[in-house]
Design a protein around this nucleic acid. Structure first.
Length: 597
RNA sequence: CGGGGUGUAGCGCAGAUGGCAGCGCGCUGCGUUUGGGACGCAGAGGUCGGCGGUUCAAGUCCGCCCACCCCGACCA
């Protein structure tokens, strides 16, 4: 490609609002352009890299038996109604009506379509196992897209779906993906770890997320360096340190003016925060058949801990969960700032109330809790004696320094970007949609499914995030838009010769199967060197009168400082060798990763 | 959805108290220059986010709306 013809320009300044390196550099280098919030165009440079990323995914998924196909982006609502997700998923789902007023869905993922195909195509155990996949557009109307390609609303995903006769079969395909995913990320040059994750809207039994660790990530992870425990904060568990058991003391009401927060309360009473009960009020939307009902949620955790909303959502099987407003708190008969389950009216006209307590609360004695009276708290509140709950389960978030649940180590908090995930779905979708097969024993059984996704744009952004410096991007050879960038130092005394040699070099490299970006523009050398650095093509060749005098061309790697003069008749071989070296460097990174449950 | 912020040329931005819409980069033409974002001269480019209002006069004041960004909530 000639730079003079490339359909994108580099920018000296990034658009205002771009904050993280991958976003700034992908915009500046002309890889992406924004159309609307969370909606981007992949310009020709990005498209070339994306194609390479996708081809790596194809190769690895084909290698574990995947068959590529293409499923539709527009789905009739019926299949989503069959699995109930039409009702369970909120505003994140894109819905519209076609000209016949028929409800339609913009694909967020393809379990329903796969289950629909499966019930029509798969009849016998003899046809299983199957692994199918496609690389296709998804729409998820995220409430807050951000950080360039890291978090978008429209994106391309490689999603594969495994179909098996039983859980053992699923385990095998799950493990195959577990390793194939590491291979994909390593071939793209980025280090990842696999962590346990929430199954979220996918449902099912087990899920792992692949996390690229970076401070610019938006997920928080907890890792144990001692035993390899690794989990997203949404689901991370930890060894809770119960305080020593005490004899329950009698309830006592005390005045605690202006103590609306746990910190103020603990300071005022001169007690540790762990001796208090923190009440958090949420409103949950809980599906019931085709509709859903709103419930007021009274969640109680020990004062020194934080509520984990994902755990609470799962405990309630809620569709949506949001903080309650002060008006709502008052409406159920509680007093904001001094609320607790004590003395709460049994009934209220506003909303049904569900009380959920953290599983540490029954082992916590003589806590201080709100008195439901403005300016007062109760001392010596004990669960079971003074109040009860509808649900007792783990609803707190693990934090840096908490004890590992699986060994005597300590958990460490890090940030990461989720670049892929794998789910054991089981029969969630096949049962709902009647995707069954006849087994050896003649019985109809639901197909056991798994689903596995990698977003190609987010992966590309993660690579850009990992490989850059103050001058620009530094593409790994496996995903670079071009292998070679030719800087033609035209003008000057020997201009004609330089131009002729450059054009010939461009042709010869291409004839050798090397992908070349040829900077043939009538610009000063500085502009070209800077654009070469910004775009980040791994090998730079400079053709100028200076080196031509020695019948040489200068070669430089983007990730190294040395510049080498290569005789002109050896340049093709030298470039081929350098590409081979770079490819070897990447392949060295592909390692076997033992499967961690 | 809550809090904060920004919308003026392709990009980055300036436009006190209302009074001819500007700067830098980029772009076009001509000339000079050519190994790390060159220089001169001459140019092109604007519904000032939208609608309504106040006013002799609105980029500027008022109201409503929209879009985008950041933090949180939420999310794969």
């Amino acid at each position: 490609m000639r730079m003079s013809k490339l359909f994108s320009q580099t920018l000296r300044q990034a658009p205002a609002g771009a904050k993280i390196p991958s976003h700034i550099l992908l915009e500046r280098a002309g890889f992406i352009r924004q159309l609307a919030a969370g909606i981007y165009t992949a310009m020709p440079l990005a498209k070339r890299s994306l194609t390479k990323v996708e081809n790596i995914m194809r190769a690895e998924i084909n290698a574990i038996g995947g068959q590529e196909m293409a499923m539709p982006v527009i789905h009739p609502a019926e299949i989503w109604q069959e699995t109930e997700r039409w009702y369970q998923i909120g505003s994140e789902m894109g819905r519209f009506k076609d000209k016949n007023e028929r409800d339609m869905v913009l694909a967020m993922t393809h379990e329903e379509v796969v289950a629909d195909l499966t019930r029509n195509e798969i009849h016998s155990y003899r046809q299983l196992p199957i692994l199918i996949y496609h690389i296709q557009t998804k729409w998820r109307d995220d409430p807050r897209p951000r950080a360039g390609l890291i978090r978008v609303r429209e994106f391309t995903m490689k999603d594969s779906y495994s179909l098996d006769v039983d859980w053992e079969g699923l385990d095998g395909q799950y493990r195959n993906h577990y390793q194939a995913y590491f291979n994909i990320f390593h071939r793209c040059g980025i280090p990842v770890i696999a962590v346990r994750s929430d199954v979220g809207m996918m449902g099912g039994k087990m899920a792992h997320e692949y996390m690229y660790l970076t401070p610019n990530g938006e997920d928080t992870l907890l890792l144990c360096d001692k035993c390899k425990y690794a989990a997203n904060r949404h689901v991370a568990i930890f060894e809770k340190d119960a305080l020593p058991a005490e004899e329950p003391q009698s309830l006592e009401k005390v005045a605690t003016p202006h103590c609306k927060t746990i910190t103020e309360l603990a300071e005022f009473l001169d007690i540790p925060e762990a001796k208090t009960a923190k009440a958090i009020f949420m409103v949950a939307d809980i599906p019931e058949g085709e509709t859903s009902i709103q419930k007021f949620v009274f969640a109680i955790v020990r004062g020194d801990m934080n509520l984990n909303e994902v755990k609470l959502t799962n405990a309630l099987a809620a569709k949506e969960l949001r903080p309650a407003t002060e008006d709502e708190i008052v409406a159920i008969g509680a007093v904001p700032g001094y609320a607790s389950p004590l003395g709460l009216p049994e009934e209220n006209d506003y909303m049904p109330v569900v009380t959920v307590v953290d599983d540490l609360i029954p082992d916590s004695y003589n806590l201080v809790a709100g008195a439901n009276d403005d300016g007062y708290h109760m001392l010596n509140v004990n669960f079971g004696r003074d109040y009860n709950a509808d649900i007792i389960t783990d609803i707190t978030s693990a934090r840096d320094g908490d004890a590992c649940p699986e060994c005597d180590g300590t958990l460490r908090e890090v940030r990461g970007i989720e670049v892929g995930n794998i789910f054991k779905l089981g029969d969630r979708y096949s049962k709902a949609m009647g995707a069954t097969f006849q087994d050896k024993d003649g019985r109809d059984k639901p197909v056991i499914m798994g689903s596995y996704g990698i977003g190609s744009g987010r992966l590309l952004a993660s690579i850009a995030e990992e490989y850059n410096d103050e001058y620009g991007l530094i593409w790994p050879i496996s995903v670079t838009p071009y292998h070679v960038y030719i800087v033609m130092i035209s003008g000057g005394k020997d201009a004609e010769n330089v131009e002729q040699v450059s054009a010939q070099l461009y042709q010869d490299l291409q004839a050798a199967g090397i992908e070349v970006l040829f900077d043939d523009r009538d610009d000063s050398p500085g502009v070209k060197f800077n654009d070469a650095d910004l775009i980040g093509v791994p090998i730079r060749l400079t053709v100028g009168a200076r080196s031509l005098k020695k019948s040489c061309i200068e070669m430089k790697r983007r990730d190294q400082d040395e510049r080498n003069l290569i005789p002109m008749d050896e340049i093709i071989t030298a470039v081929e060798n350098e590409i081979a070296v770079m490819e070897a460097e990447i392949v060295e990174k592909v390692v076997e990763v033992p499967f961690e449950e």
